[in-house]
Nucleic acid binder design. Sequence first.
DNA 1: TCATTAAATTGTT
DNA 2: AACAATTTAATGA
Length: 224
Amino acid sequence: MRSLDDMLALSTWTRELPAEQLRKVRAAIAVRDFDAGACICRKGDPASAWLGVIDGLIKIHSLSPAGKSVTFAGIPAGGWFAEGSVLRGKPFMYDTVALRDSRIAFLPEATFRWLLDTSIPFNRFLLQQLNERLGQFIGMVEHDRLLAPDARVARALAALFNPHLYPDADPQIQISQEELGYLAGASRQRVNRALQVLGKAGLIKVDYGLVTVLDLDGLQRYGS
DNA sequence: TCATTAAATTGTT
DNA sequence: AACAATTTAATGA
């Protein structure tokens, strides 16, 4: 399992931070491990920290009153999230759950605001992150209405490998087809078929509980 | 190390 | 949604 320092080395916003400032940030971050299925934060919890996925995989999702689940985003190792709630100073609006055993970094709200007030590189990073996410969600609406199921699964999968949001060199992701279904808004059966199609097209390789991306660019543009 | 079993995941209808 | 097949992880000899 990766360490906090691995993740900080991977995050682009740490690179231009003066050593002294990075040291302070590093000292303020708390690290917690979660078992697969565990809840990292719930809707309504105060957003007291900016969160980073050091290792593992988490999802941001919402449960309907009837118990149906919609997943808005899966966030693999290397990703930071919840800046929206921290910026607003409002409680979390969604639940986040560990899909696998995961290690999470908690960067306290006060430290987050201090970075916001003092660091141009940090602000630049946040701006890019918000922009990338906005692009992803706009894309989701577009794909949901315009693309066939195979292509929707392809995009949902590709979104997990956004190099700006998740700067992780590992082209593999350990995720079940059921979770991929929640992410793509498709049934598990449909995802199963889509993965077979995408595998035959040479874009991905499918193994038990594991998907390896062979051609990210091809995945992104599949079906359009 | 190997066999057994339960649990998770996948493939198919 | 249901079922069978497959893979993994855990357990104990």
